[in-house]
């Protein structure tokens, strides 16, 4: 190498080093361990609270989670590593803002899929009144993710949906106690119109967490759309006992009981109207309330 080239190379190296120093000086300082722990805690949902982060909650579980986060931060784990760990232990739902990709996409796609399944149920079974009501209940569920800012529902191609079901089936078989995998598989099956299989998977999720209102509603919905409304009754009764003023539960249970000629169905539907006076289904519910009871056999269908 000539002396001129060597000097040029040295100059370039010095220049690169200077640029590096300037960039390092200009970059914001790394957040402290406390700030990193706080950021992680703010990204996690307190599992025993309503819409509260682990950072803000004083629930015992949240306090324990914060202690564990602090410990992991001080052990050198990155925020991503800690969040991944919590996702593995608790499922995607532990994140306050589940991403619209991977399994997180289910949190955005599922509510839309429920409505589609309800509509298919209406067309396929000619039980239009019941299916309409089911769709309305699902529409109520849809509002939660749609009103969450920053994300929008995504659309999954049919072939991806099938692959997703295969993937979720394998994962659920490998981890039979993982609630979110069970629920994810059930939701994917429901959105694919495989209501009967979805109901079985919801049953597994329901066994893991019978107190989860959403699972109970989805389970009951899958049972109804797969023609197993009788099996949905005890699920909805249990949900009603736990959440006596839940509008969606009142609507579904009231409709099922009303369909069977039970006067209690009317009571539940009236309670639904009290709680949801502005419901778009008000007219339909009132029509049902004043109409004479349906035939004793719920198998009678009209064209």
């Amino acid at each position: 190498m000539s002396r001129g080239r060597a000097l040029t190379a040295v100059g370039v190296c010095i220049l690169v080093a200077l640029v590096g120093v300037i960039i390092a000086l200009a970059a914001p300082s790394a957040p402290s361990a406390e700030q990193r722990a706080r950021d992680v805690a703010e990204s996690l949902r307190c599992p025993t609270c309503v819409a509260e982060s682990v950072a803000d909650s004083q629930a015992p579980v949240a306090i324990a989670m914060r202690a564990l986060i602090d410990d992991r931060v001080h052990r050198g784990d990155s925020p991503d590593q800690i969040l991944s760990w919590f996702r593995r232990q608790y499922g995607e739902g532990i994140l306050l803002d589940p991403g619209a990709s991977g399994i997180g996409i289910l949190f955005w796609v599922i509510p839309v899929a429920i409505v589609i399944v309800a509509a298919l149920g209406a067309a396929g079974r000619r039980r239009w009144r019941l299916a309409t009501f089911l769709g309305a209940a699902a529409a109520a569920l849809i509002l939660i993710p749609l009103l969450t800012p920053g994300e929008s529902p995504a659309v999954v191609a049919e072939e991806d949906q099938v692959d997703g079901i295969d993937l979720l089936t394998s994962a659920a078989e490998a981890h039979p106690g993982d609630l979110d995998l069970r629920r994810g598989l059930a939701d994917a099956l429901a959105s694919a119109g495989r209501s009967d299989e979805a109901a079985d998977e919801y049953a597994a999720a329901y066994r893991l967490d019978p107190g989860d209102r959403r699972i109970a509603l989805d389970y009951a919905g899958a049972l109804i759309t797969s023609g197993r409304a009788d099996e949905a009754l005890p699920v909805l009764e249990s949900a009603h006992a736990r959440y006596p003023d839940d509008a969606a539960v009142l609507l579904l249970l009231g409709t099922l009981l009303d369909d069977r000629g039970s006067p209690r169905g009317d009571d539940l539907l009236r309670r639904y109207l009290e709680l949801e006076p502005e419901s778009a289904l008000r007219d339909a519910v009132e029509t049902r309330l004043v109409a004479p009871g349906p035939p004793a056999s719920s198998g009678t269908e009209s064209g």
Partner: peptide
Amino acid sequence: ADGSLSVEWGITGIPQSFV
């Protein structure tokens, strides 16, 4: 004592039982 073991089990409330 600090609840970390329970969090590792993924508890979402008390009491909770696992099989």
